[in-house]
Design a protein around this nucleic acid. Sequence first.
DNA 1: TATCTGACTTTGG
DNA 2: CCCAAAGCCAGAT
Length: 105
Amino acid sequence: MYAVVRRIPRGSVATYGQVAALAGAPRNARFVGFALHANPEPGVIPCHRVVFRDGSLAPGFAFGGPERQRALLEEEGVAFVPPVDGANAGADGWRVDMDRCRWRA
DNA sequence: TATCTGACTTTGG
DNA sequence: CCCAAAGCCAGAT
């Protein structure tokens, strides 16, 4: 499953459910998050590329804060959407543009 | 062995 | 449109 996360190409993101599915366990979205939280290889496993289904980040991001994550993704060319609508405001209210940056295997 | 909890997701009110 | 509850699977206690 860590292999799956590492396989996420630069400039793209995947949802927990998606990673779970690719890992061979479509119903293990929660476990994916749990495993990533354990993050045995910081700096190697791009946890910041794994987001909620709506493109928002997990509450307890462990890379240095939501801003850090947004910076990392923007750095990779991931498109962000400003908190324009009342959907899940996630980190700073900014969400990943899933329509354009969602990882396609 | 039983019970609880969780970086999730989907559906009902 | 927003809030709450249920379902899911695998650890942890």
